[in-house]
């Protein structure tokens, strides 16, 4: 089959199609692997769902955050960001750190697999998990929390959760190469929970102390959450363009940190 045609030609299209095939295979099995790893999939999906049920559906029943936007609808945005962050930090931050400490990453590097395939597969896994989480949260909100959501609103929060998974994945990568693998779990929690709280994913930012409100914009989660709130018709801060630029900037910084950390490891290992 395709293998024979490839051996006959080392031309660009042959190599390209094989690279693409490798990429798709890596992505497919990374998603399958993550879903099968219950400890990860149940907690990555379970935490945001549980928190949303508790704070969005049970505790603040029938309350509104602003005219026409219920707490249940507002928190949908925050917990979508929370879910996306969790999938990336635990899936990539810890996943890659473990691959690294076990020597699996080295074996992959020594293989002819394009290194980008590994990284992209991890990112796509985080994107897929983000979409699963947003869908479950939306379903719960509509059925149990009387959330009314238009299709464009749903499409927007899906899109934002998927896009947000990318800067968070880069954060995960930076973490995986920067932190000693043994402490990856602790560091993941030290980023995940405080960052979520400080960027107003659990409690609206205006209820936080003033000092915390001023530092919130350093977190990518803050910017993604503001985009979510705006898409849901809830009050939000800042400009759309500003948030996207901040997310892009954060992504680039994290990629730079990852690259430096990777180089440092390469030289010292």
């Amino acid at each position: 089959m395709s293998a024979t045609t490839l051996s006959l030609s080392t031309t660009q299209p042959g190599t390209l199609s094989r690279t693409l095939r490798i990429l798709l295979t890596e992505m497919r099995f990374e998603i399958i692997r993550a879903l099968r790893t219950r400890a990860f999939s149940l907690s990555a999906i379970g935490f945001p769902v549980m928190f949303y049920c508790l704070f969005g559906l049970i505790m603040n029943r029938n309350e509104n955050i602003s005219a026409g936007v219920s707490v249940a609808k507002y928190l949908l945005g925050g917990y979508a960001v929370f879910g996306s962050l969790g999938a990336a930090i635990f899936g990539i931050g810890i996943g890659v750190a473990m691959d690294r400490s076990a020597g699996w990453l080295e074996l992959k590097q020594a293989s002819p697999m394009p290194p980008l395939a590994y990284v992209l597969a991890k990112c796509v896994m985080a994107v897929v998990f983000s979409l699963i989480i947003v869908s479950i949260l939306t379903l719960l909100g509509i059925t149990l929390g009387h959330v009314s959501l238009t299709f464009p609103e749903f499409a927007h929060i899906d899109l934002f959760a998927a896009a947000g998974a990318i800067p968070f994945s880069c954060l995960g990568l930076a973490m995986a190469f920067l932190a000693p693998p043994a402490s990856a779990g602790g560091i993941a929690n030290m980023i995940y929970l405080p960052m979520s709280f400080l960027s107003g994913l659990w409690v609206p930012i205006r209820f936080l102390p003033h000092i915390l409100q001023t530092i919130a914009p350093i977190f990518p989660t803050y910017h993604l959450a503001q985009l979510m709130y705006a898409a849901l018709g809830a009050p939000s801060l800042g400009s759309t363009l500003g948030h996207w630029i901040s997310l892009l900037g954060f992504t680039l910084i994290m990629l730079g940190v990852t690259w430096l950390a990777f180089r440092r490891l390469e030289q010292n290992s």
């Binding site: 099995f29 399958i32 692997r33 790893t37 400490s101 076990a102 699996w104 074996l107 020594a110 002819p112």
Partner: peptide, 18 residues
């Protein structure tokens, strides 16, 4: 070069759920 090379390293754990 890597296409003609096979590698077996001491790997603590490969992805376990595959």
């Amino acid at each position: 070069t890597r296409l003609r090379t096979g590698v077996m390293l001491q790997v603590g754990r490969a992805p376990e759920m595959l």
